[in-house]
């Protein structure tokens, strides 16, 4: 049981936004660009650490797959599909605290 699970995950393609509704009633929005930028897979994190910029300009979401109750795997149009986003991480990204979450 994961009480932090969102009620729904909506991808609004035209607005290029991911919208998450939480059980507390609040709604978070994350741009597709930010989703790609904050990809937390080992490859992307390593690139960030050595200072290589991630190409995020034309990153749109092509598919999302639930990972049990823990989070969601997001597949991007640039072919990258290795990032799994736990619920807490998505919340942190929306608040602009993605880095903090990863370093905790």
């Amino acid at each position: 049981m994961n009480s932090d699970m969102p009620l729904s995950i909506k991808l609004k393609k035209r607005a290029s936004l991911l919208e998450l509704s939480w059980s507390e009633g609040d709604v978070d929005q994350i741009s597709e660009q930010n989703l790609r930028r904050y990809c937390a897979c080992s490859g992307c994190r390593a690139k960030k650490q050595v200072g290589v910029e991630l190409m995020t300009d034309n990153a749109s979401v092509t598919d999302m797959v639930l990972m049990g109750t823990t989070g969601v795997q997001i597949k991007f149009s640039d072919g990258h599909d290795r990032g799994i986003y736990p619920w807490g991480y998505l919340r942190a990204i929306a608040k602009g605290e993605g880095e903090v979450f990863l370093n905790d």
């Binding site: 049981m1 969102p6 995950i9 909506k10 609004k12 639930l66």
Partner: peptide, 13 residues
Amino acid sequence: TTPVSPEIVMLEE
């Protein structure tokens, strides 16, 4: 008491 898994929707809007 287990919450239902979230629904994933892709909207064209």
